[in-house]
Each structure stands twice: as structure tokens, then as C-alpha cells.
Amino acid sequence: MSPIDANPLACVIIDDNEMNRLTLERSVQRHDQLRLAASFSDAVEALAYFHAAGPADVLLLDIEMPHLSGLELVKLLPDPKPAVILVTTHASFAVDAFELRVLDYLVKPVGYGRFCQAIARVTEQRTAAIVPPPLKSAPADISSNGSDLFVKTSGKFLRINFEEVLFIEALSTYVVLVTDKCKHIVGGTLKNMEERLPFRHFVRVHRSYIVNMHRVEVMVDNMLKLGAHEVPVSRPYQDDFVQRLQAL
């Protein structure tokens, strides 16, 4: 365990199904980087825990619950928010999860291996917030006309004009290409997408975001405005990004 992860992460579980909740509790107890801080069957009761500043680095959250759904709860969480991992029986909530910027999305029944992958994303996120990865030179342009690439989305290969892409956001084992008009959900990780992109003006600005520098309209403090969207620039990337902007 690295110095950053020397102390186990406080984990909170919210699931109204007792069997599912106990299964998650056992997974937490098996994992040497986690400690079970609290476990709730009711989201309203759990919200009171968060407002009382109960310890929580990681939240394992069911979506479909009475009184208050998991998606509604995420919107109500006070800052600083824990890393949220949604746990559900339906894959259809993935786009809603993207909108709420949750860290991962698990479909029940959750195997211990998949659970460990989600926790690894939490620890990677915490490490990336402190130590940025080394910058890599961009690969040569391999697209057919200098701005297009084919990506697989919804079971088909789609030609994307990346000049229209504002930014790319990580979502569990998917990435989302955001344009002015639509969003394309593509299988793979943000790292995979970053390595494939042949465009020098697509730059990593956050552990969860790559932006098209040609589409940045305004930068205020650590926030970028791209069309109708705002994207954060995390501190480790900020100085380098400002230098790149000034060099345009």
C-alpha cells in the first residue's frame, strides 16, 4: 500500500435489500484498503449521516430505493462528496450516472473481482489528484482527414469529427464524447482513449477529463467553459494547461 493509501478508506453502504447489503459489507471487510464506516438500509437516514459529517471516502450506493433514490441522494450530498460507486440491477441508469459524475457503476450481482476494480479506481483517483502522470508527446495524426476517427458505440462503428468534440469524460468502463449537440458513450477507459487520440489539441486537464483546446472559450480560476458545459482543471494539471493555452 502506498503512503497515500496508508490509512483504510472509510466506506459507507446504502442498500435497502438486506442480502445485497450484507454481500457488500463482506466485500468491504475483505478489502485491506477499506474499513466499513456505516451501512444503511434507508437513504434518508444515510443523508442525515452525511450532513452530520460522518466519515466517508467511498459510497457504495443502490439506485432503486423507497423514499429517496440513489440518484436523488447523490444530488443532495454535502461537499466534500465521497467517491460514489453506484450498485444496481439495471444497466439502463448509465447515462444518468454520467450526468452525476459518479466514479463507477456496478451491475448486480457484483463479483468480488469487479468490486476490487472499482475500489482500484478510487485509489487511482486519489493518487492522480496529488501526483499527475508524466506528460507524453502526442502520436502522429493517423486519421483519414486530420479530424476524424471511428469509434464503437451502441454496437456500431461511427465516424466522429473530433473538431466537434468539446471534451471527453470518464464514466466507469466507458468514456463519453460530448459535442454541442449530443453525447456518444464509447467502451474503454479514458487512458485508452488518450493513447489513441492523434490530436495534439486534446489535452488531459483532470483525472476524468480530456478537453479540446480549440473549443475552450473561457478559463476562470480552475473552470473551463466549452459551449454550454463547464469542466474543472485539477491543480496538478493547471500550470501546464495554462502554458499550452498561451502557446496557441
Results as ranks from 00 to 15, higher is better:
Ser2Gly: 07
Pro3Asn: 05
Asp5Glu: 11
Ala6Leu: 14
Asn7Arg: 06
Leu9Asp: 09
Val12Thr: 08
Asp15Trp: 01
Met19Ala: 13
Asn20Arg: 04
Arg21Glu: 02
Thr23Trp: 04
Leu24Arg: 01
Glu25Asp: 09
Val28Lys: 04
Gln29Phe: 00
Gln29His: 03
Leu34Ser: 07
Arg35Trp: 07
Ala37Arg: 00
Ala37Trp: 02
Ser41Phe: 04
Asp42Pro: 03
Ala43Ser: 08
Ala43Ile: 00
Val44Lys: 11
Ala46Glu: 02
Ala46Asp: 01
Leu47Glu: 11
Ala48Arg: 08
Phe50Gln: 01
Gly54Leu: 00
Gly54Cys: 06
Pro55Glu: 07
Asp57Gln: 10
Val58Phe: 01
Leu61Arg: 05
Leu61Val: 12
Leu68His: 09
Ser69Pro: 09
Gly70Cys: 02
Gly70Asp: 00
Glu72His: 04
Leu73Asp: 03
Val74Thr: 11
Lys75Val: 06
Asp79Ser: 10
Pro80Thr: 07
Lys81Leu: 06
Pro82Gln: 07
Pro82Glu: 03
Ala83Pro: 02
Leu86His: 00
Val87Glu: 09
Ser92Ile: 05
Ala94Trp: 04
Glu99His: 08
Glu99Gly: 01
Arg101Gln: 15
Asp104Val: 03
Lys108Asn: 10
Lys108Thr: 11
Pro109Ile: 10
Val110Pro: 02
Gly111Cys: 07
Gly113Gln: 15
Gly113Ala: 13
Phe115Asp: 05
Ile119Met: 10
Val122Gln: 14
Gln125Pro: 02
Arg126Val: 09
Arg126Asn: 14
Thr127Tyr: 10
Ala129Met: 14
Val131Cys: 04
Pro133Leu: 12
Pro133His: 02
Pro133Trp: 10
Leu135Met: 13
Lys136Asp: 10
Lys136Gln: 13
Lys136Thr: 09
Ser137Lys: 10
Ala138Ile: 12
Ala140Arg: 06
Asp141Leu: 15
Ile142Arg: 13
Ser143Ala: 05
Ser144Lys: 15
Asp148Phe: 05
Asp148Gln: 13
Asp148Met: 08
Leu158Phe: 01
Arg159Ile: 07
Phe162His: 10
Val165Gln: 03
Val165Asn: 06
Leu166Tyr: 01
Leu166Trp: 00
Ile168Ser: 05
Val176Asp: 05
Val176Asn: 11
Val178Thr: 15
Thr179Val: 00
His184Ser: 08
His184Asn: 11
Ile185Arg: 06
Ile185Leu: 15
Leu190Tyr: 00
Lys191Leu: 14
Glu194Ala: 15
Glu194Lys: 01
Leu197Tyr: 03
Leu197Phe: 07
Phe202Arg: 10
Arg204Leu: 05
His206Lys: 14
Ser208Phe: 12
Val211Asp: 10
Met213Gln: 14
Met213Ala: 08
His214Ile: 13
Val216Arg: 02
Glu217Tyr: 03
Val218Tyr: 03
Val220Cys: 13
Asp221Lys: 11
Gly227Arg: 08
His229Glu: 11
His229Pro: 12
Val231Tyr: 09
Pro232Val: 06
Val233Asp: 06
Tyr237Ser: 06
Tyr237Gln: 06
Gln238Glu: 09
Asp240Ile: 12
Asp240Lys: 11
Gln243Cys: 04
Leu245His: 05
Gln246Asn: 11
Gln246Glu: 08
